[in-house]
Write a protein that binds this DNA or RNA. Structure first.
Length: 110
DNA sequence: TCCATGACATCTG
DNA sequence: ACAGATGCCATGG
């Protein structure tokens, strides 16, 4: 039997694959991750996908921030995310991350 | 099929 | 810098 409606599965895997590429100590925005996954303008889909991830996933879900460099995850998750970020050496100034420094990928390094 | 929802993004005042 | 309005894309009822 063919799976004609595997559009979501496909999108999900691509998002997960892209997410797995994000190195420790760096971050990406939802929109950026969507692009890397080949799904431009599907930022919200990224959010829904991440929300479904099992709590014991090894994917770096905590390295995903919104375009403002702030955590979009509502409490109590935000607390855990911030902790994980700082654990990787990412500094949150006034509740936000400096994307000019931590955003991945950086042109220079590319 | 239509409508509501969401870990977003961008523009405007 | 901040809040509200609008646009986007896929999912689920």
């Amino acid at each position: 039997m063919r799976k004609i409606k595997s559009e979501a599965n496909d999108a999900t895997s691509r998002i997960c694959l892209a997410l797995a590429q994000v190195p420790s100590g760096r971050v990406v925005t939802y929109g950026r991750l969507a692009e890397l996954a080949g799904l431009p303008r599907a930022a919200r889909l990224v959010g829904q996908t991440l929300r479904k991830l099992p709590k014991d996933t090894r994917l770096p879900w905590h390295r995903v921030l919104n375009a403002q460099g702030k955590i979009s995850l509502p409490e109590p998750g935000a607390q855990r995310q911030m902790k994980r970020l700082e654990a990787e050496g990412i500094t949150l100034m006034n509740g936000k991350v400096d994307l000019g420094i931590y955003l991945w990928p950086q042109e220079k390094e590319l």
